[in-house]
Design a protein around this nucleic acid. Structure first.
Length: 482
RNA sequence: GGCGCUAUCGUCUAAGGGUUAGGACGGAGCCCUCUCAAGGCUCAAAUACGGGUUCGAAUCCCGUUAGCGCUACCA
């Protein structure tokens, strides 16, 4: 039975690297019909914040993947205390009474290999340890890493392969803080054991921590989980993504607010550090579940490609466009309606449904629809330069002739795009104008700019009244002195 | 400093002893076309460096370099 967990600590927003870790765990669980567990690792009371927790949930909610079980470490402290006590009893742990300030004094031991332990504390008799603890002297509980003889800790990482490290290079890490709260290592292992986690899938920054965890799992007794570490997501400058240095691009909510489809963003994140072993790029959630394996995860860090001018990875944008394009029109219209309303447009569901097919392949984000579809909703076109009305290889007189003819032709007759095209093409022929020379002035008059969706469908949706009025205004504009 | 991990086009990646080193994004060009977009075609663009092993190395081994991680009473 596959049981995996995502264990964020509420000390910040939901980072995109964390989001990817969540997604890979989730995909692995779904692929194996296992259980996805969300565990809030909030053992550091000093640093946790409620806002952070809320923003993490908000990010996860947006991704829309869900989870099966939920735990919070702050509610499980007794479990960690018991486990710590058992470790102490069995001699796997010892009390270290060194005051925090005195740590500096111990650093002379670092010289050649780094800090390992305080030998006096490690060697202290249980009687003295108990006596000093009973007297109320503060201590941290440390794991007694096996030394003399040292041994090599080994495991096979499902991504990175065989791993080995000598206990001579592993320090006596803390289990319990002097305030009695468990450290990450302790709470995490106790929980992973208690929750019967089968696979620990997490960031590569924990790869070397795993040796400590193996030692701890062994001491705790219980089934050893499998481990799989994920390459990290980094910034173009090679540094790890940080809000301070790289700004809001590190938070998943930025992508929601930029108008991303969650499934597109999930797709994008999956392609960073994993590939389906074929050339597929755009994949649905179902396809991802089916294709996801740990073997497909690679070992080198992936750069999220953004710049200050272009804060969003171009590939993410492209993928989002792909997903938008493959949405049923009704679905997309439903997504776009609130976007337009928020922009202050008088959008209705019916209107949204008519406009959407015309812009579907012209937007890369939901938010793009605001600028791309403005003229469908705005009463008053935003001002444009009269020169825009003049077609290529044409002049003011040509534009005027085209618009006046168009005004006359559009004043009556069927208002369907087929009929409009027929009449307008005939009109162009009559005037001896090329299609572009005829259509471009009309497009600018009606849309207020040179680039827009196909003309006839656009006219159809904008409506006769508005079209005639806008063409009239354009004619007036052209007739004004330059 | 110690220990560990990593190294293919600008970016994401494929190729796990034999390929003109493949695909995608982005870039350039062409086609299509009422503009834009979409789509199609083409081009430019990579095996960090040095040694081995081998008939043959992007691929295996060693070294160098670089980057990253851990080395907290953070996670």
């Amino acid at each position: 039975m596959v049981r995996v967990r995502f264990a964020p600590s509420p000390t910040g927003y939901l980072h995109i690297g964390s989001a990817r870790t969540f997604i890979f765990n989730w995909l692995f669980a779904r692929h194996h019909k296992g259980t996805m567990i969300l565990r809030i690792d909030d053992t550091d009371v000093e640093r946790n914040t409620e806002e952070s927790l809320e923003s993490i949930f908000e990010g996860l909610r947006w991704l829309g993947l869900g989870w099966d079980e939920e735990y919070r470490q702050s509610e499980r402290f007794p479990l960690y205390r018991e486990a710590a006590q058992a470790l102490l009893e069995k001699g796997f742990a010892y009390r270290d009474f060194t005051p925090p300030e005195a740590k500096a004094g111990a650093e002379e031991g670092e010289g050649k290999g780094g800090w390992l332990c305080h030998p006096e504390m490690r060697a202290m008799s249980r009687e003295e340890s108990d006596r000093r603890a009973a007297a109320g002297e503060p201590f941290v509980l440390r794991f007694r890493v096996p030394r003399e003889p040292e041994r090599t800790v080994r495991f096979r990482d499902l991504v990175y392969g065989e791993q080995a490290k000598s206990t001579a290079d592993i320090e006596d890490f803390a289990l319990l803080r002097s305030n009695g709260a468990p450290t990450y290592h302790h709470a995490s292992c106790v929980d992973d054991a208690d929750l019967r986690i089968s696979h620990i899938i997490r960031g590569q920054d924990h790869l070397t921590n795993t040796f400590k965890h193996i030692l701890l799992f062994e001491a705790l007794g219980g089934q050893m989980p499998e481990f799989a570490h994920l390459p990290l997501l980094i910034a173009p400058d090679g540094a790890k993504l940080s809000k301070r240095r790289h700004g809001p691009v590190v938070s998943v909510l930025t992508y929601r607010d930029a108008g991303f489809l969650p499934q597109a963003y999930v797709n994008f994140l999956c392609l960073l550090g994993w590939n389906p072993k074929d050339d597929r790029e755009k994949m649905t959630l179902e396809e991802l579940i089916e294709a996801f394996t740990l073997e497909g995860v690679n070992r080198s860090n992936a750069v999220v490609n953004f710049t200050e001018e272009d804060p969003i990875d171009p590939k993410a944008l492209w993928l989002n466009a792909q997903h938008i394009y493959s949405l049923p029109v009704e679905t997309l219209a439903g997504l776009l309606l609130p976007v337009w309303q928020k922009a202050g447009y008088e959008a209705t569901a019916e209107k949204a449904l008519r406009v959407t097919p015309l812009i579907q392949e012209r937007i890369r984000t939901l938010n793009d629809a605001v600028a791309v579809a403005d003229f469908f909703f705005l009463k008053e076109l935003r001002p444009y330069d009269a020169a825009e009305l003049i077609p290529q290889k044409g002049d003011r007189a040509m534009a005027l002739r085209a618009l006046e003819k168009a005004h006359a032709v559009l004043a009556d007759g069927d208002w369907t795009h087929q009929a409009l095209e027929e009449r307008l093409r005939a009109a162009a022929a009559e005037l001896g104008l090329k299609a572009g020379q005829m259509f471009q002035p009309i497009r600018v008059a009606v849309c207020g700019r040179k680039n827009a969706p196909p003309l006839f469908e656009t006219l159809e949706v904008v409506g006769r009244e508005a079209c005639l009025e806008r063409i009239g205004k354009a004619i007036a504009l052209l007739q004004q002195e330059p």
